[in-house]
């Protein structure tokens, strides 16, 4: 395996959790809900995924545990913001703070434990294709899932009636309600989908990317995922592109650190965060374009009067 190939492989591994979490949040935001708790749900997915895999001995059950944890955790947010109309920004923040605390407590006994890695799944035949074979068909199972998820969400949002309904809720919850669409119900499902995705992304971190549990191991990836959704102007394919761009920055700076170019490692480590800021500035500079793409009801509480 050539060095270029191995670099590309690791880029995909670094991009996958960002992609999954961002795709989940994209659906949530398309439904008009801003959940800033991605980081918290992700870290809960990471710890529960790791714990599930360690306790049962099966990384697959770990993945399921991560997904379930993310979805269950998102219900807290859903109840507060959807059922009792709490402020979405503040509630999302509290989900992140609670998730970071809770995961630290749950994971305390797992610190330093050897992980249970989810092994790669080479697709017979296809993975032997020269050049692209290993890259596209010799990856971890969650990688395939992330690609399927992206395509699935694209199809759902723009090719199905339910997807259209969901988008209409995000653009004008008042009108959707007047048409008899159960706004809150849809939003509950969307938030749970986002939670499940964030949980899966976290499980990928603790079962594939670095198979171990470290406190705060998400290291801001949930926030970067949130930024990706804005960067992608709420389009799934652009989320994919953005996630791989960030995967490339992450892996690129790691390799630069290994080479020891005399650049402080801290400066290199801060590149993904700085890149997020730069990218956000570039994309939001065009005020009209941002206004056009943002779901119009994003972040607003909805209380049906009857």
């Amino acid at each position: 395996m050539g060095i270029a190939e191995s670099i590309l492989l690791t880029i995909a591994t670094a991009a996958t959790p960002l992609l999954i979490a961002a795709i989940g949040e994209l659906v949530v935001e398309r439904a008009g809900v801003l959940n800033l708790g991605v980081e918290g749900m992700m870290v809960m997915g990471a710890v529960c995924g790791f714990a599930g895999a360690t306790v049962t001995g099966s990384p697959w059950l770990g993945v399921l545990a991560g997904i379930a944890a993310g979805a269950a955790f998102s219900l807290l947010f859903a109840f507060l913001t959807l059922s009792i109309a709490a402020n979405q920004v503040a509630t999302g923040l509290s989900l992140t703070l609670l998730g970071l605390g809770l995961s630290g407590m749950i994971g305390e006994s797992f610190v330093g434990t050897a992980g249970n890695k989810l092994s790669s799944l080479a697709i017979p035949g296809l993975s032997d294709i020269p050049l692209v074979g290993r890259l596209m068909f010799g990856q971890d199972p969650i990688f395939y899932l992330s690609i399927l998820l992206t395509i699935g969400v694209m199809w759902f949002l723009f090719r199905t009636r339910t997807g259209l309904t969901l988008r209409s809720i995000g653009d004008n919850h008042g009108s959707a309600h007047a048409l008899g669409i159960p706004v809150i119900f849809y939003r509950y499902l969307a938030v749970m989908f986002g939670g499940a995705c964030a949980g899966l992304a976290g499980a990928h971190l603790s079962l594939v990317y670095t198979p171990q549990w470290v406190e705060n191991m998400t290291a801001g990836r949930g926030w970067i995922a949130l930024a990706l959704v804005v960067f992608a102007s709420w389009r799934p394919l652009r989320v994919l592109a953005g996630a791989y761009l960030f995967g490339a920055v992450t892996i690129g700076q790691l390799h630069a650190q290994a080479l020891g170019l005399g650049i402080p490692s801290q400066l290199l480590s801060s590149l993904p965060y700085l890149a997020t800021v730069v990218v956000l500035v570039i994309i939001s500079r065009n005020r009209r374009l941002t206004m056009m793409n943002t779901p119009a009801s994003l972040g607003r509480a909805f209380v049906p009067d009857r």
Binding site: L80, N87, S94, G99, L100, G101, M105
Partner: peptide, 20 residues
């Protein structure tokens, strides 16, 4: 575990926002 403190803090914010 001293991690419990952060759980307390997180829960507190949840309840505050809910009660508001």
């Amino acid at each position: 575990s001293d991690k419990v403190a952060r759980v307390f803090q997180g829960m507190l914010l949840f309840f505050v926002l809910g009660c508001d």
